[in-house]
Amino acid sequence: MKNYTYIEKVSFIRSIIGNLLFIPSFLALIFINFRYGPILFLFYLFIAYWGIFFISTEGLEFDFQNKKHRKLFSVYGINFGLSWNYFQDLKYIALVETFVKQTFGGRGFGATATTTVSEKTVKINLFDQNDKYQTLYFANNRIEALKIATEIKNTYQIEVVTNF
């Protein structure tokens, strides 16, 4: 059996902004003159970090032979993987379209501004024989979730259940 790797694509605007932040700040870090002090070093390091944040993306890697998967982070096509997670004998895959809400601000003693951002995502759950689920991934849209689910479906010959 083969391994399957899925990496999300970075949008054109994010890649332009990320490269405009990362490349000049990285060059400035290399050629920095230390007599100006460590403040400029920290400033360029901070800008380089945000550049990497914009150009990085995430994904999944499956090892179907050993029944394990891991989350990947990718920067310029170089993949960094986290630890492997094993899954049991699969019964079916469930694709659930949900809204994810995230609230920013509003913590502390004084009155502060808060905002709530919500986005529509597709949650991919793997169900084992005991109907216990393991959340595999949050995909950005239905097409990406169906790509991942059909790859698992074709390998293990199991059913895909959706709510859309």
Rank of each mutant, 00 (worst) to 15 (best):
A139D: 07
H69K: 07
I152A: 14
F62L: 12
Q134M: 06
I93P: 05
S83Q: 11
T57V: 04
Q129W: 11
A139Q: 00
L29R: 10
K101Y: 12
T5M: 07
F46Q: 03
T98K: 14
Y49A: 08
I124R: 04
F43A: 14
K9D: 06
F127I: 14
K123Y: 04
N33I: 11
Y76M: 13
L45R: 14
V75M: 04
N33M: 12
I93L: 13
W50P: 01
F54K: 01
F62Y: 10
F104Q: 06
V75T: 08
A48W: 09
N19E: 03
G51W: 00
K120I: 12
G77N: 02
G105L: 04
V10P: 00
F34K: 03
F127C: 11
A111E: 02
A145R: 05
I7Y: 05
E97V: 11
E119F: 04
S15G: 00
N140M: 02
F87H: 15
I93E: 07
N163L: 15
A145T: 15
E144A: 15
F127T: 11
L20E: 08
I152Q: 12
F22Y: 11
S118Q: 12
N154I: 01
G18V: 00
T116C: 05
V117D: 14
Y49Q: 02
G18C: 06
D128V: 07
F22T: 06
T155P: 04
G51P: 00
I78E: 07
Q102M: 07
T114S: 10
I55C: 06
G51K: 00
V100N: 11
V117Y: 11
S118P: 01
I23D: 01
F104W: 07
F22P: 03
K101E: 13
A94M: 14
G110K: 09
I143E: 13
I17H: 00
N85S: 14
I152P: 15
N125H: 05
T98N: 12
Y44S: 12
V161W: 09
N163P: 09
G110F: 05
T115L: 07
N19H: 05
K9T: 07
S11C: 11
F62W: 08
M1P: 01
N141A: 09
I17L: 01
G106W: 12
T112E: 13
I30D: 10
Y6E: 03
N125P: 00
D89K: 14
F64I: 13
V100F: 09
T121R: 14
I143H: 07
Q157N: 12
E151N: 11
Y86C: 00
K67N: 14
F41Y: 13
F53I: 07
Y4R: 02
L136D: 06
K120F: 01
N33S: 13
F46H: 04
F109K: 05
L29A: 13
V100P: 00
Y137F: 13
E159N: 08
N3Y: 03
A149G: 11
I124G: 01
Y76L: 15
L45H: 13
V75A: 04
I30T: 08
V75R: 02
N33P: 04
A48I: 03
L20A: 06
Y137N: 06
L40D: 10
Y36K: 14
A139C: 05
V122N: 07
K147Q: 13
L60T: 10
I23V: 06
V100G: 02
F54E: 00
G105S: 02
V96L: 15
K68T: 01
N130R: 05
E159M: 09
E61L: 09
L42W: 15
L82W: 09
K91M: 12
Y4K: 03
F34H: 03
L60E: 02
Q157R: 12
